[in-house]
Design a protein around this nucleic acid. Structure first.
Lengths: 187, 187
DNA sequence: TGTTTTACGATGCGTTCGCATTGCAAAAAC
DNA sequence: GTTTTTGCAATGCGAACGCATCGTAAAACA
Protein backbone atom coordinates (compact mmCIF):
# COMPACT_ATOMS: atom_id res chain seq x y z
CA UNK A 1 0.00 0.00 0.00
CA UNK A 2 1.06 3.61 -0.32
CA UNK A 3 2.72 5.36 2.56
CA UNK A 4 0.64 5.18 5.70
CA UNK A 5 -1.05 8.52 6.26
CA UNK A 6 -2.43 10.04 9.41
CA UNK A 7 -6.08 9.32 8.87
CA UNK A 8 -7.34 11.81 11.45
CA UNK A 9 -5.04 14.50 10.17
CA UNK A 10 -6.37 14.10 6.64
CA UNK A 11 -9.95 14.25 7.86
CA UNK A 12 -9.10 17.38 9.78
CA UNK A 13 -7.58 19.01 6.70
CA UNK A 14 -10.73 18.32 4.70
CA UNK A 15 -12.91 19.42 7.60
CA UNK A 16 -10.95 22.65 7.64
CA UNK A 17 -11.74 23.20 3.99
CA UNK A 18 -15.41 22.54 4.71
CA UNK A 19 -15.37 25.23 7.39
CA UNK A 20 -13.71 27.68 5.02
CA UNK A 21 -16.35 27.03 2.37
CA UNK A 22 -19.13 27.54 4.91
CA UNK A 23 -17.59 30.77 6.18
CA UNK A 24 -17.16 32.13 2.68
CA UNK A 25 -20.33 31.00 0.92
CA UNK A 26 -22.65 29.31 3.39
CA UNK A 27 -23.75 25.78 4.13
CA UNK A 28 -25.41 25.16 0.78
CA UNK A 29 -22.10 25.76 -1.01
CA UNK A 30 -20.66 22.65 0.63
CA UNK A 31 -20.31 20.07 -2.13
CA UNK A 32 -17.76 17.38 -2.84
CA UNK A 33 -16.36 19.44 -5.69
CA UNK A 34 -16.12 22.74 -3.84
CA UNK A 35 -14.61 21.17 -0.75
CA UNK A 36 -12.08 19.25 -2.82
CA UNK A 37 -11.12 22.43 -4.66
CA UNK A 38 -10.86 24.42 -1.44
CA UNK A 39 -8.71 21.74 0.16
CA UNK A 40 -6.62 21.46 -3.01
CA UNK A 41 -7.21 17.74 -3.35
CA UNK A 42 -9.17 15.45 -5.64
CA UNK A 43 -12.80 14.54 -5.19
CA UNK A 44 -11.71 10.94 -4.82
CA UNK A 45 -9.69 11.80 -1.75
CA UNK A 46 -12.61 13.58 -0.12
CA UNK A 47 -14.82 10.58 -0.81
CA UNK A 48 -12.17 8.27 0.59
CA UNK A 49 -12.37 9.97 3.98
CA UNK A 50 -16.07 10.77 4.10
CA UNK A 51 -18.74 8.39 2.90
CA UNK A 52 -21.36 11.12 2.48
CA UNK A 53 -21.59 14.89 2.45
CA UNK A 54 -23.70 14.70 5.55
CA UNK A 55 -20.97 12.89 7.46
CA UNK A 56 -18.57 15.58 6.26
CA UNK A 57 -20.77 18.34 7.63
CA UNK A 58 -21.20 16.60 10.97
CA UNK A 59 -17.45 16.24 11.24
CA UNK A 60 -16.99 19.92 10.44
CA UNK A 61 -19.51 20.78 13.11
CA UNK A 62 -17.63 18.73 15.70
CA UNK A 63 -14.41 20.32 14.51
CA UNK A 64 -15.42 23.93 15.08
CA UNK A 65 -17.18 22.97 18.30
CA UNK A 66 -13.87 21.64 19.57
CA UNK A 67 -12.06 24.72 18.28
CA UNK A 68 -14.38 27.05 20.13
CA UNK A 69 -14.13 24.91 23.26
CA UNK A 70 -10.35 25.04 23.00
CA UNK A 71 -10.38 28.82 22.67
CA UNK A 72 -12.64 29.12 25.70
CA UNK A 73 -10.46 26.68 27.61
CA UNK A 74 -7.41 28.84 26.94
CA UNK A 75 -9.00 31.75 28.77
CA UNK A 76 -7.92 32.12 32.39
CA UNK A 77 -8.27 34.63 35.16
CA UNK A 78 -8.29 34.60 38.93
CA UNK A 79 -10.76 37.45 39.05
CA UNK A 80 -14.22 35.94 38.39
CA UNK A 81 -15.55 39.15 36.92
CA UNK A 82 -12.65 39.43 34.49
CA UNK A 83 -12.87 35.72 33.72
CA UNK A 84 -16.55 36.07 32.89
CA UNK A 85 -15.92 39.09 30.71
CA UNK A 86 -13.10 37.40 28.86
CA UNK A 87 -15.22 34.33 28.12
CA UNK A 88 -18.10 36.41 26.79
CA UNK A 89 -15.75 38.40 24.56
CA UNK A 90 -14.22 35.15 23.33
CA UNK A 91 -17.66 34.11 22.08
CA UNK A 92 -17.80 37.17 19.85
CA UNK A 93 -16.05 37.44 16.47
CA UNK A 94 -13.37 39.83 17.72
CA UNK A 95 -10.10 37.92 17.42
CA UNK A 96 -9.00 36.57 14.01
CA UNK A 97 -9.64 32.99 15.13
CA UNK A 98 -13.11 33.82 16.37
CA UNK A 99 -13.86 35.79 13.22
CA UNK A 100 -13.06 32.72 11.17
CA UNK A 101 -15.13 30.37 13.30
CA UNK A 102 -18.17 32.49 14.08
CA UNK A 103 -19.69 32.42 10.57
CA UNK A 104 -19.50 28.65 10.63
CA UNK A 105 -21.18 28.51 14.02
CA UNK A 106 -23.87 30.87 12.82
CA UNK A 107 -24.54 28.73 9.76
CA UNK A 108 -24.95 25.58 11.85
CA UNK A 109 -27.07 27.48 14.37
CA UNK A 110 -29.50 28.48 11.64
CA UNK A 111 -29.46 24.99 10.16
CA UNK A 112 -30.42 23.60 13.57
CA UNK A 113 -33.76 25.38 13.20
CA UNK A 114 -34.76 23.01 10.40
CA UNK A 115 -32.54 20.04 11.24
CA UNK A 116 -33.22 18.77 14.76
CA UNK A 117 -30.24 16.40 14.69
CA UNK A 118 -27.96 19.41 15.17
CA UNK A 119 -29.95 20.47 18.20
CA UNK A 120 -28.60 17.74 20.46
CA UNK A 121 -24.92 18.74 20.57
CA UNK A 122 -25.87 22.43 20.56
CA UNK A 123 -28.11 21.81 23.54
CA UNK A 124 -25.32 20.13 25.50
CA UNK A 125 -22.92 22.96 24.80
CA UNK A 126 -25.49 25.51 25.84
CA UNK A 127 -26.26 23.69 29.09
CA UNK A 128 -22.59 23.59 29.99
CA UNK A 129 -22.19 27.24 29.17
CA UNK A 130 -25.20 28.25 31.23
CA UNK A 131 -23.94 26.24 34.19
CA UNK A 132 -20.48 27.79 33.98
CA UNK A 133 -21.85 31.31 33.56
CA UNK A 134 -24.20 30.82 36.51
CA UNK A 135 -21.28 29.68 38.65
CA UNK A 136 -19.23 32.72 37.72
CA UNK A 137 -22.12 35.07 38.33
CA UNK A 138 -22.61 33.57 41.76
CA UNK A 139 -18.91 33.94 42.48
CA UNK A 140 -19.08 37.66 41.71
CA UNK A 141 -22.48 38.45 43.13
CA UNK A 142 -24.03 35.70 45.29
CA UNK A 143 -27.78 35.38 45.50
CA UNK A 144 -30.39 36.31 42.94
CA UNK A 145 -31.21 33.88 40.16
CA UNK A 146 -27.85 33.10 38.55
CA UNK A 147 -29.24 30.58 36.09
CA UNK A 148 -31.71 33.08 34.76
CA UNK A 149 -28.96 35.67 34.48
CA UNK A 150 -26.77 33.14 32.72
CA UNK A 151 -29.44 32.27 30.16
CA UNK A 152 -30.10 35.92 29.47
CA UNK A 153 -26.41 36.59 29.10
CA UNK A 154 -26.01 33.70 26.67
CA UNK A 155 -28.94 34.83 24.54
CA UNK A 156 -27.42 38.30 24.55
CA UNK A 157 -23.99 37.21 23.32
CA UNK A 158 -25.50 34.87 20.73
CA UNK A 159 -27.54 37.71 19.31
CA UNK A 160 -24.62 40.06 19.52
CA UNK A 161 -22.43 37.59 17.64
CA UNK A 162 -24.90 37.62 14.76
CA UNK A 163 -25.17 41.41 14.78
CA UNK A 164 -21.41 41.75 14.59
CA UNK A 165 -21.18 39.14 11.83
CA UNK A 166 -23.79 40.94 9.79
CA UNK A 167 -22.07 44.23 10.36
CA UNK A 168 -24.84 45.91 12.34
CA UNK A 169 -22.56 46.32 15.33
CA UNK A 170 -18.86 47.10 15.24
CA UNK A 171 -16.46 44.98 17.32
CA UNK A 172 -15.76 48.00 19.53
CA UNK A 173 -19.44 48.64 20.14
CA UNK A 174 -19.94 44.96 20.90
CA UNK A 175 -17.25 45.02 23.55
CA UNK A 176 -18.83 48.11 25.04
CA UNK A 177 -22.24 46.43 25.08
CA UNK A 178 -20.83 43.38 26.83
CA UNK A 179 -19.36 45.58 29.54
CA UNK A 180 -22.61 47.45 29.86
CA UNK A 181 -24.65 44.28 30.11
CA UNK A 182 -22.23 42.75 32.60
CA UNK A 183 -22.39 45.82 34.82
CA UNK A 184 -26.17 45.44 34.87
CA UNK A 185 -26.01 41.77 35.79
CA UNK A 186 -23.19 41.91 38.32
CA UNK A 187 -24.41 44.76 40.50
CA UNK B 1 -56.02 36.85 -23.35
CA UNK B 2 -57.04 34.72 -20.37
CA UNK B 3 -58.91 36.30 -17.52
CA UNK B 4 -57.03 39.17 -15.95
CA UNK B 5 -55.48 38.00 -12.71
CA UNK B 6 -54.29 39.99 -9.74
CA UNK B 7 -50.59 40.02 -10.42
CA UNK B 8 -49.55 41.05 -6.92
CA UNK B 9 -51.85 38.51 -5.34
CA UNK B 10 -50.29 35.71 -7.39
CA UNK B 11 -46.81 36.81 -6.44
CA UNK B 12 -47.84 36.87 -2.83
CA UNK B 13 -49.22 33.33 -3.04
CA UNK B 14 -45.96 32.06 -4.48
CA UNK B 15 -43.96 34.08 -1.97
CA UNK B 16 -46.00 32.43 0.75
CA UNK B 17 -45.03 29.03 -0.56
CA UNK B 18 -41.38 30.11 -0.58
CA UNK B 19 -41.64 31.07 3.08
CA UNK B 20 -43.24 27.74 3.95
CA UNK B 21 -40.44 25.85 2.18
CA UNK B 22 -37.82 27.90 4.04
CA UNK B 23 -39.51 27.33 7.38
CA UNK B 24 -39.78 23.60 6.80
CA UNK B 25 -36.51 22.76 5.10
CA UNK B 26 -34.28 25.80 5.01
CA UNK B 27 -33.13 28.26 2.38
CA UNK B 28 -31.27 25.75 0.23
CA UNK B 29 -34.47 23.78 -0.32
CA UNK B 30 -35.92 26.70 -2.25
CA UNK B 31 -36.03 25.61 -5.89
CA UNK B 32 -38.47 26.29 -8.69
CA UNK B 33 -39.79 22.74 -8.44
CA UNK B 34 -40.20 22.66 -4.68
CA UNK B 35 -41.85 26.06 -4.55
CA UNK B 36 -44.20 25.16 -7.38
CA UNK B 37 -45.14 21.92 -5.62
CA UNK B 38 -45.63 23.69 -2.28
CA UNK B 39 -47.80 26.34 -3.91
CA UNK B 40 -49.70 23.69 -5.84
CA UNK B 41 -48.98 25.29 -9.19
CA UNK B 42 -46.84 24.52 -12.22
CA UNK B 43 -43.22 25.50 -12.61
CA UNK B 44 -44.25 27.58 -15.58
CA UNK B 45 -46.47 29.74 -13.40
CA UNK B 46 -43.68 30.35 -10.90
CA UNK B 47 -41.38 31.34 -13.74
CA UNK B 48 -44.04 33.60 -15.16
CA UNK B 49 -44.07 35.69 -11.97
CA UNK B 50 -40.39 35.53 -11.02
CA UNK B 51 -37.57 35.78 -13.53
CA UNK B 52 -35.01 34.14 -11.25
CA UNK B 53 -34.89 32.22 -7.99
CA UNK B 54 -32.97 35.08 -6.49
CA UNK B 55 -35.75 37.53 -7.24
CA UNK B 56 -38.14 35.05 -5.64
CA UNK B 57 -36.08 34.93 -2.47
CA UNK B 58 -35.80 38.69 -2.27
CA UNK B 59 -39.55 38.99 -2.65
CA UNK B 60 -40.05 36.43 0.10
CA UNK B 61 -37.71 38.39 2.32
CA UNK B 62 -39.66 41.59 1.74
CA UNK B 63 -42.86 39.67 2.35
CA UNK B 64 -41.96 38.40 5.81
CA UNK B 65 -40.36 41.72 6.66
CA UNK B 66 -43.70 43.39 5.98
CA UNK B 67 -45.52 40.70 7.92
CA UNK B 68 -43.34 41.20 10.96
CA UNK B 69 -43.69 44.97 10.65
CA UNK B 70 -47.46 44.56 10.45
CA UNK B 71 -47.52 42.41 13.58
CA UNK B 72 -45.42 44.96 15.43
CA UNK B 73 -47.63 47.76 14.17
CA UNK B 74 -50.69 46.01 15.56
CA UNK B 75 -49.28 46.22 19.07
CA UNK B 76 -50.52 49.15 21.11
CA UNK B 77 -50.39 50.32 24.67
CA UNK B 78 -50.56 53.62 26.52
CA UNK B 79 -48.16 52.39 29.16
CA UNK B 80 -44.64 52.66 27.68
CA UNK B 81 -43.32 49.81 29.83
CA UNK B 82 -46.09 47.47 28.73
CA UNK B 83 -45.74 48.65 25.14
CA UNK B 84 -42.03 47.86 25.21
CA UNK B 85 -42.62 44.46 26.73
CA UNK B 86 -45.32 43.62 24.19
CA UNK B 87 -43.09 44.54 21.28
CA UNK B 88 -40.20 42.45 22.55
CA UNK B 89 -42.50 39.46 23.06
CA UNK B 90 -43.87 39.96 19.57
CA UNK B 91 -40.35 39.51 18.22
CA UNK B 92 -40.17 36.04 19.76
CA UNK B 93 -41.77 32.93 18.22
CA UNK B 94 -44.57 32.75 20.80
CA UNK B 95 -47.77 33.33 18.83
CA UNK B 96 -48.65 31.01 15.93
CA UNK B 97 -47.98 33.75 13.40
CA UNK B 98 -44.61 34.55 14.90
CA UNK B 99 -43.74 30.86 15.10
CA UNK B 100 -44.36 30.57 11.37
CA UNK B 101 -42.34 33.64 10.50
CA UNK B 102 -39.39 33.35 12.86
CA UNK B 103 -37.70 30.39 11.14
CA UNK B 104 -37.79 32.31 7.88
CA UNK B 105 -36.28 35.37 9.53
CA UNK B 106 -33.59 33.23 11.12
CA UNK B 107 -32.71 31.68 7.77
CA UNK B 108 -32.31 35.08 6.11
CA UNK B 109 -30.38 36.37 9.11
CA UNK B 110 -27.84 33.59 8.76
CA UNK B 111 -27.70 34.06 5.01
CA UNK B 112 -26.88 37.71 5.54
CA UNK B 113 -23.59 36.60 7.06
CA UNK B 114 -22.36 35.39 3.66
CA UNK B 115 -24.55 37.55 1.39
CA UNK B 116 -24.01 41.25 2.08
CA UNK B 117 -26.93 42.26 -0.17
CA UNK B 118 -29.31 41.11 2.55
CA UNK B 119 -27.52 43.26 5.08
CA UNK B 120 -28.89 46.54 3.75
CA UNK B 121 -32.60 46.02 4.49
CA UNK B 122 -31.76 44.22 7.73
CA UNK B 123 -29.66 47.18 8.78
CA UNK B 124 -32.49 49.63 8.16
CA UNK B 125 -34.93 47.53 10.16
CA UNK B 126 -32.48 47.27 12.99
CA UNK B 127 -31.82 51.01 13.05
CA UNK B 128 -35.53 51.74 13.23
CA UNK B 129 -35.97 49.19 15.97
CA UNK B 130 -33.10 50.57 18.02
CA UNK B 131 -34.46 54.09 17.69
CA UNK B 132 -37.93 53.03 18.75
CA UNK B 133 -36.66 50.98 21.67
CA UNK B 134 -34.45 53.85 22.81
CA UNK B 135 -37.43 56.16 22.75
CA UNK B 136 -39.51 53.80 24.82
CA UNK B 137 -36.72 53.25 27.30
CA UNK B 138 -36.35 56.99 27.72
CA UNK B 139 -40.10 57.32 28.23
CA UNK B 140 -39.99 54.81 31.07
CA UNK B 141 -36.69 55.75 32.62
CA UNK B 142 -35.19 59.03 31.39
CA UNK B 143 -31.44 59.49 31.41
CA UNK B 144 -28.73 56.88 31.06
CA UNK B 145 -27.71 55.69 27.63
CA UNK B 146 -30.96 54.59 25.98
CA UNK B 147 -29.38 53.73 22.65
CA UNK B 148 -26.92 51.42 24.29
CA UNK B 149 -29.71 49.80 26.25
CA UNK B 150 -31.74 49.47 23.08
CA UNK B 151 -28.93 47.77 21.19
CA UNK B 152 -28.34 45.37 24.04
CA UNK B 153 -32.04 44.60 24.26
CA UNK B 154 -32.22 43.92 20.53
CA UNK B 155 -29.23 41.60 20.59
CA UNK B 156 -30.84 39.86 23.53
CA UNK B 157 -34.19 39.22 21.83
CA UNK B 158 -32.48 38.18 18.58
CA UNK B 159 -30.44 35.58 20.44
CA UNK B 160 -33.45 34.51 22.44
CA UNK B 161 -35.46 34.04 19.26
CA UNK B 162 -32.86 31.62 17.98
CA UNK B 163 -32.68 29.76 21.28
CA UNK B 164 -36.45 29.31 21.30
CA UNK B 165 -36.47 28.19 17.67
CA UNK B 166 -33.82 25.59 18.35
CA UNK B 167 -35.65 24.41 21.41
CA UNK B 168 -33.03 25.40 23.94
CA UNK B 169 -35.45 27.73 25.71
CA UNK B 170 -39.18 27.16 26.14
CA UNK B 171 -41.60 29.94 25.21
CA UNK B 172 -42.50 30.35 28.90
CA UNK B 173 -38.87 30.65 29.94
CA UNK B 174 -38.31 33.16 27.13
CA UNK B 175 -41.15 35.35 28.37
CA UNK B 176 -39.72 35.16 31.87
CA UNK B 177 -36.27 36.12 30.60
CA UNK B 178 -37.67 39.11 28.75
CA UNK B 179 -39.34 40.33 31.93
CA UNK B 180 -36.16 39.77 33.87
CA UNK B 181 -34.05 41.62 31.34
CA UNK B 182 -36.55 44.47 31.14
CA UNK B 183 -36.57 44.88 34.89
CA UNK B 184 -32.79 45.22 34.77
CA UNK B 185 -32.87 47.82 32.03
CA UNK B 186 -35.82 49.87 33.26
CA UNK B 187 -34.81 50.38 36.92
C1' DT C 1 9.92 -11.85 -4.24
C1' DG C 2 5.35 -12.30 -4.52
C1' DT C 3 0.99 -11.04 -2.52
C1' DT C 4 -2.04 -8.32 -0.38
C1' DT C 5 -3.82 -4.17 1.15
C1' DT C 6 -4.17 0.77 1.25
C1' DA C 7 -4.92 5.39 -0.66
C1' DC C 8 -6.33 7.37 -3.76
C1' DG C 9 -7.40 9.45 -9.10
C1' DA C 10 -10.51 9.08 -12.69
C1' DT C 11 -14.66 8.32 -14.73
C1' DG C 12 -19.45 7.48 -15.25
C1' DC C 13 -24.39 7.46 -13.98
C1' DG C 14 -28.78 9.06 -12.66
C1' DT C 15 -30.89 13.02 -10.59
C1' DT C 16 -31.92 17.70 -9.86
C1' DC C 17 -31.11 22.18 -10.77
C1' DG C 18 -32.07 27.12 -13.12
C1' DC C 19 -33.45 28.91 -17.03
C1' DA C 20 -34.83 29.38 -22.08
C1' DT C 21 -37.96 28.19 -25.45
C1' DT C 22 -42.20 26.92 -27.52
C1' DG C 23 -46.96 26.39 -27.97
C1' DC C 24 -51.58 27.37 -27.09
C1' DA C 25 -56.17 28.43 -25.10
C1' DA C 26 -58.78 32.13 -23.84
C1' DA C 27 -60.28 36.69 -23.06
C1' DA C 28 -59.70 41.42 -24.03
C1' DA C 29 -59.55 44.86 -27.76
C1' DC C 30 -61.13 46.30 -31.95
C1' DG D 1 -65.72 38.17 -35.91
C1' DT D 2 -61.13 38.92 -36.17
C1' DT D 3 -56.97 40.12 -34.08
C1' DT D 4 -54.04 40.65 -30.46
C1' DT D 5 -52.33 40.00 -26.11
C1' DT D 6 -51.97 37.60 -21.79
C1' DG D 7 -51.21 33.68 -18.65
C1' DC D 8 -49.62 30.02 -18.37
C1' DA D 9 -48.13 24.53 -19.28
C1' DA D 10 -44.75 21.74 -21.29
C1' DT D 11 -40.49 20.56 -22.74
C1' DG D 12 -35.62 20.80 -23.44
C1' DC D 13 -30.83 21.82 -22.25
C1' DG D 14 -26.43 22.35 -20.10
C1' DA D 15 -24.44 22.43 -15.59
C1' DA D 16 -23.78 20.74 -11.08
C1' DC D 17 -24.86 17.51 -7.90
C1' DG D 18 -24.00 12.89 -4.76
C1' DC D 19 -22.41 8.68 -5.14
C1' DA D 20 -20.72 4.16 -7.16
C1' DT D 21 -17.30 1.98 -9.58
C1' DC D 22 -12.98 0.88 -11.51
C1' DG D 23 -8.12 1.12 -12.08
C1' DT D 24 -3.56 1.63 -10.25
C1' DA D 25 0.84 2.95 -7.88
C1' DA D 26 2.99 1.76 -3.90
C1' DA D 27 4.04 0.25 0.71
C1' DA D 28 3.34 -3.30 4.03
C1' DC D 29 3.42 -8.19 4.76
C1' DA D 30 4.42 -13.09 3.78
Amino acid sequence: MPKQVDHDERRRQIGDAVCRVIAARGLNAVSLRHVAAEAGVSMGRVQHYFATVDEMLMFAFDLISERVAARLGAVHSDDPAKYLRAILLELLPLSPDARAEAPVLAAFLAQAVVEPRLGVPLHEGNEQMVAWLAGMITAVRPGGDPKRDAMALLAFVDGLMLQVLIGQVTPEAAEDLVDHQLSRVLT
